[in-house]
Design a protein around this nucleic acid. Sequence first.
DNA 1: ATTATGACGGTTC
DNA 2: AGAACCGCCATAA
Length: 104
Amino acid sequence: MPASSSGEFIEHVCAIVDSIPPGRVMTYGDVAAVLGSRGARAVGQIMARYGADLPWWRVIRAGGHPPAGHEDRALAQYRAEETPLRDRPGGYRIDYPAARWSPG
DNA sequence: ATTATGACGGTTC
DNA sequence: AGAACCGCCATAA
């Protein structure tokens, strides 16, 4: 099938994010890496536009920080699916090494 | 085709 | 540890 259409990147990103199981997370860079690209920002763009129907909270930034501007909603989800978190005074961070997941 | 934007990443101060 | 700067990629206008 001729999947070579505009927006191929978008559909791939959506598929990957949607395939992330509960309690697991992936960084924007990882998602992009799976597609053979380094467009971590591009992935964020897609989340902002098409991530409304996806488990966007399972996609975090490098270092274990939640999506900027969505820390609150993300935290609620993490606590709801028992995502490995690392509580911190004044905020929190995700235990990336433990919650890390790859589509393979 | 060019410019501006963004739920980023890494390095440096 | 926090802030600033530059670099990278795809989308939208």
